[in-house]
Simulated scan of single mutants.
Amino acid sequence: MTRIPDAVSVASLDTHRLIVAVANSGHTDVSSNLPPSGVASVLRQIADRYEEKAGQCLGAFVDGVPCPVHDAPASVSEAALDAGRHAADGAADGMRRAQRPAGLDALLDHLAAAMSLDDDQDVDEPEALTAGVVRASLDFNDGDRDQVLATLRDVLLDTTTTRTPEQALAAARILLTAHARQIAALIDAHYRAIRTESGLNRSTRGLLTGYEGARKIVARYADGLADEQALAEAADREQAEQ
């Protein structure tokens, strides 16, 4: 016998937040304008409601009467164990629901704030940008196409070293001295190339004299920077010895 309903209700998402249609055969249709987490929460509430049974066995489910065997009151030890299990489940659920920092950087900051160094653990002090560090970087880039440019790049990109205004000024003096000597060498090379190709005569004398004068000006500038740096380093040594 087929039961035919007296009326058919029409529901839409304009009037309902969640619509679940379960046919006798085929797929179950679920429509909702709730977020996925909200739909899951509602469906869990429905499932919890329909799982409320009279007892724990099939007989109690059919008869609606608690079973004297399976639904008997738990002993004190069993109740304690059951309470412990519920407490553990609650703690695990709380840990899962705890808010985590968003993003890798925030997570690392969160871990760093939660951790502390042991009292006996040594902390490495960052290296300072001393004149020796800058000169060592120049030596390292000696084979580069432009030694000073490569060293300037390395100094600017190095965020691991600390620097005071005096140390930054010392680095600038050292790099500008090396750069000025590069320019002087280029002028000297051009001077020698013209003299080798055209010789020293009336037409080239003025040009070569200009090149030689420019080389001396740049060389004096480099020597002046080197002298200033030498005096600064001597003053630092004297202050350290006091």
Rank of each mutant, 00 (worst) to 15 (best):
A40S: 14
F140N: 09
G143Q: 13
A72S: 03
H86L: 15
Q182C: 04
T130N: 08
V8Y: 09
T159K: 14
S116A: 14
Q229P: 00
S137E: 13
A226P: 00
G64S: 03
R181L: 10
G143M: 12
A83H: 10
N24W: 04
Q182A: 09
A87T: 06
A222F: 07
A171G: 05
P68L: 05
L58K: 12
I183R: 13
D223T: 04
P36F: 07
A185M: 06
V30E: 05
N141G: 02
Q45L: 14
L13W: 07
D223N: 12
L176Y: 02
E241P: 01
A189H: 13
A47E: 15
A11I: 04
R97H: 07
L152M: 14
A180R: 07
S77V: 13
A54L: 05
D236M: 11
A102T: 03
R153C: 02
L200A: 09
Y50G: 05
G143T: 08
C67L: 09
S37T: 08
Y221M: 13
V123F: 05
T15Y: 06
E212N: 12
A79Q: 15
V123Q: 15
T162F: 04
R215A: 07
A214H: 14
L176H: 06
A185T: 07
D89E: 14
V22F: 09
A106G: 09
G143H: 12
M115P: 00
S116G: 00
V42S: 10
A235W: 06
G213P: 00
T162G: 09
G210A: 14
G64K: 07
A106F: 09
L43P: 10
A185R: 13
H190C: 03
D29L: 11
A214K: 11
S37R: 15
I183P: 00
L225G: 06
V76Y: 10
A112N: 12
K53T: 10
P66A: 04
I187A: 09
G26V: 03
L107K: 15
N24P: 13
L231V: 08
L200M: 11
G38T: 06
G206P: 04
Q147P: 08
L176N: 11
